[in-house]
Design a binder for these strands. Sequence first.
DNA 1: ATGAAAGCGCTAACAA
DNA 2: TTGTTAGCGCTTTCAT
Lengths: 361, 361
Amino acid sequence: MADSTKASNAASPASARTVRRRASITDVAKAAGVAVGTVSNVLNKPDRVLPATRERVEAAIAELNFVRNGSARQLRAGTLTSVGVVVLDLSNPFFTDVARGIQDRLERDSFTLMVAGSDEDLDRERRYLRLYEEHGVQGVIVSPATDDIDHVLAVRERGTAVVLLDRPSPVPEVASVAVDDVAGGRLAVEHLIAQGHERVALLNGPHTIRQCRDRREGAAAAMTDAGLDPEVALEEITVPSLTPDGGEAGIRELLALPAAARPSAVFCVNDLVALGVLRTLRRDGVAVPEEIAVVGYDDVTFAAELATPLSSVRQPTLELGTRAADLLFRPEGSAPEQVVFSPELVIRESSTTSPLEAGSP
Amino acid sequence: MADSTKASNAASPASARTVRRRASITDVAKAAGVAVGTVSNVLNKPDRVLPATRERVEAAIAELNFVRNGSARQLRAGTLTSVGVVVLDLSNPFFTDVARGIQDRLERDSFTLMVAGSDEDLDRERRYLRLYEEHGVQGVIVSPATDDIDHVLAVRERGTAVVLLDRPSPVPEVASVAVDDVAGGRLAVEHLIAQGHERVALLNGPHTIRQCRDRREGAAAAMTDAGLDPEVALEEITVPSLTPDGGEAGIRELLALPAAARPSAVFCVNDLVALGVLRTLRRDGVAVPEEIAVVGYDDVTFAAELATPLSSVRQPTLELGTRAADLLFRPEGSAPEQVVFSPELVIRESSTTSPLEAGSP
DNA sequence: ATGAAAGCGCTAACAA
DNA sequence: TTGTTAGCGCTTTCAT
């Protein structure tokens, strides 16, 4: 990758580097020849102050390049008009779509949204949560990386609104918005069984992640219901990461098996993983769905447009987000809600040769 | 979308709703029978304090569920170990990949990253920037929505480190990391011309966005170089949004033209738009690339795996991010840098029927 | 090693 | 309408 770096060396004049302390409200007051309270009023209740003085103050503000110190402001005021979100993976369209839903809803009340990604790491999740809390956000929406959510509950205990995202709340006092992942896993595998598959590989993430565990449970249940023994019929492969590359690694493991011993279908825990699987199968010349059928999860934007359009379990991302945002600000005394959406299977070519039967776009 | 809402109505016992003020350091001090200064030391320089007292303090902290108030802390300490990022669009994989690059790099110094999306809206950009600044982040990385970046420069003026993302800095004092978009636009259109196309439609965003303007400029330059008149040969269509739906709207406008009057190739300002174009063309039964060739921009993960693999201009996303993070923390006196990466064209089927010639995946 | 106290910048309550 | 002042929770001298 060519990369031209031209350091502009017009060494900044000494003056520009002067250590200029950020102007405070006191400086402004002094410059405008008024009291600090007046400046504060100009900032917060401009009508309380005479147009003439206001102008002088505003001039001083512009002159000194004043920006209100949020920490001080908040120290006084208590809390901030922003909310923090921690999702599992910022590069997963599923989560960014949810984030968009949250933002849409929050915008209405002119709240601001800060997002962080934990990459399924508990420590990082804790750090961000703490950061948000220390800085006094109004609320946090978090999609927990593991079952250990004591730290999340603690945040709520200390008085910050909390909504669990993509995970049903284990305790009644905490609101949550989730999609039934057991149902989703079941949908996917029921469909594969209906297509005649008797052994299915599940490319899954670690079971510390609830979504992964639940989707597996649903998959296994579908097997059992169909009279198949999950122990035999469901071959779980744990991918190194929930990404296309992870999917590639997973499917390679499968392809290493002798063709006879190999499941005829793959259920991927998300569409990113499925993308890697499809990519690898195509490169290796394995026909989808004839030799191996594939089903993904999330129904991301591009799922329908892939070389082999990908069957996928769809989740109502936007609603997840808007609903989560809603729950954050329920009136003080109201009981927290546990919202559970139902997923939907979208059948496309990757899992069926016959003309699409149902639920297709 | 079925949606079962079970409000858990075990109306929380009054006690649980008690308005319990968050415990402060003073409360802890009181509970532990020490001075506030000592508590502070336990928090910040634990070795300065006798193990015995430390334990007592720690017990009190646990007991009271104490969380340090970040605002107060920061008010005293000055600045925070976090940086803020504002990107144009959180749902664009290009930007989330860049964000990941930033986060990777920042992690090393255990900084935390907060991300916000402006959706190409100047006001929103301003709001987030101000929020970050007011809360004293160490630095901000912004991909500006418009040419008006006075507010960004002002942030720097006031002493917060600033790096412009995906946009060369117009002033030498501000660091920037960008990719040459003129070159990118040129690459795309040169390629289309080489494929024999004499009229190209450009599905573009508003020219207030620099990336859109530059890519167009490159496209036009390629035309001129080839002896074509851009006025005639380059048909620009402004899409309502830089998304698949925007792409659909744009291409429909094109399809409405009589086939003879219609350009034989489409250059999309990003891959999301291109996705919508491909989707629409497929639904309408228009052959790609035979009837209409398509080139996108960004080379997102799924570009290679689409029904018609998408030719696209690739940008070094991760490096963009890591480099931006690097620039944020150059030593005090060092001259700001303007980093410009070069894009690369990845040719796939969507723009050529002949076997791939170069730069393919 | 610990305590006492000043003060960061702001808002709100009160006084003038 | 404007000025004065207390105090938010914390860190950091400076004493002890």
